[in-house]
């Protein structure tokens, strides 16, 4: 990915760091510190989840967009990369959240409409 393939906002972010890779390294380091800190601060459970998931998404974006060059590649590559996540979400929903003990506290809209025999 060459510098000219970056958008204006990316140039603005990269400028103080020399290039986008240096910026991404700083971003990933900072967010990892936040991640570890959030757990050590003993925040309530759902706040901790919110921090971990948000930080994870930012880090994943940084790696995929700039280190893996998705920002400079044709859109079809990004679509290819995203495609399996559809099945992963299905697995997380259909398998991961299908434990009877696990779905008790979840809202009905994210609960699979069957009762598996797990633990019966």
């Amino acid at each position: 990915m060459s510098e000219h393939q970056l958008a204006k906002w990316e140039h603005a972010l990269a400028k103080p760091f020399g290039n986008i890779y240096n910026f991404n390294l700083a971003l990933l380091m900072l967010f990892t510190v936040i991640e570890v800190g959030a757990v050590y601060m003993n925040l309530p459970r759902y706040e901790t989840w919110a921090v971990l998931i948000s930080v994870g998404m930012v880090k994943a974006f940084g790696i995929a967009a700039w280190f893996m060059h998705l920002r400079g590649d044709p859109v079809i590559i990004t679509r290819t990369a995203i495609f399996p996540f559809f099945f992963v979400i299905l697995m997380l929903w259909g398998i991961g959240l299908s434990n009877p003990a696990g779905i008790e506290d979840l809202p009905s809209w994210c609960t699979p409409p069957w009762v598996p025999a797990y633990g019966a």
Partner: peptide
């Protein structure tokens, strides 16, 4: 890795 995570989620939520 998605299958590992879904297994873990299923176990962990129980």
């Amino acid at each position: 890795f998605g299958s590992f995570f879904s297994s873990y989620l299923r176990l962990r939520t129980g």
